[in-house]
């Protein structure tokens, strides 16, 4: 008798807590990263594909290590952009890591390249710098670090495809003026320091004309050797 009552009571408790849990779930936001990163979407798109604003970059499919480094740099102020610095200021490392992994694992299609507004000569100069560099001026080719397909390398080197010319040009400028910095040795700061305004315009314009490759994924770590040391991609 007692045992049966106890069992019944236990069962009732089970139901009660089940009901409670269900009600709570129904009244709670989805327990997903997508819901947690909604604050990112007005500028970076629902899946990190980018938006119509040419200064806000695509995040989707970039290496998680690269995205995590950027989140840390924004939070710590090494990369300056007040709206980003503000949003991340009080978020812990593991959460930033989860955000980076979320956007790295999203693969919305790359956008169609927009027709370029610069002349053919400028595009040719951009292509030359991006694919061969300029040894006389100590400028390495973009492809020597960002990969022959410009899709980047795990874990720290971003691909350069799907970005608008305005964004790439603004970032190269930010390195030259010190508002964007990375772990030492800050390889991109060295490279950007050798570029002229004209170089920046040409490279940014040419990169934005590149069509999407068959496989836009960053290549695995160690696929090729970097021409010089880079703090964001330790060997």
């Amino acid at each position: 008798m007692f045992a049966r009552d106890a069992a019944l009571a236990a069962l009732l408790v089970c139901f009660a807590s089940f009901d409670g849990a269900a009600a709570q779930t129904a009244n709670q936001p989805p327990d997903t990263m997508a819901a947690r990163v909604e604050a990112c979407t007005p500028c970076h798109g629902n899946k990190g594909e980018g938006t119509s604003d040419v200064y806000f970059p695509r995040l989707a499919g970039k290496p998680a290590g690269y995205l995590y480094n950027q989140l840390l740099a924004f939070r710590g102020g090494r990369r300056k952009y007040p709206p980003m610095n503000y949003l991340l200021e009080f978020l812990p490392d593991p959460y930033l890591e989860a955000m980076a992994e979320y956007f790295a694992s999203e693969h919305p299609p790359l956008p169609q390249p927009a027709p370029s507004e610069v002349s053919k000569d400028v595009l040719a100069q951009g292509e030359l710098l991006a694919t061969s560099g300029d040894a006389n001026r100590s400028i390495p080719a973009c492809v020597s670090c960002h990969g022959p397909g410009l899709t980047g390398m795990q874990p720290g080197i971003p691909g350069l495809l799907g970005l608008r010319a305005a964004y790439v040009s603004a970032q190269l400028g930010a390195w030259r003026y010190g508002t964007r910095t990375a772990k030492s040795p800050d390889c991109m700061q060295l490279v950007a320091g050798h570029l002229t305004e004209a170089d920046v315009t040409a490279v940014a314009a040419w990169l934005a004309t590149r069509p999407a490759p068959a496989n836009p994924a960053p290549v695995p770590k160690g696929t090729y050797a970097l021409p010089f040391g880079c703090g964001s991609q330790p060997n």
Binding site: P29, V37, E38, T41, P42, Y86, L91, P92, P94, A98
Partner: peptide, 22 residues
């Protein structure tokens, strides 16, 4: 400006409010 509440021991992965300035 939107904003995130702080990440805390009791709420390590807070939900955020999107900025609507743009």
């Amino acid at each position: 400006n939107g904003g995130y509440p702080p990440g805390t021991k009791g709420n390590p992965m807070p939900y955020g409010m999107p900025p609507f300035a743009g």
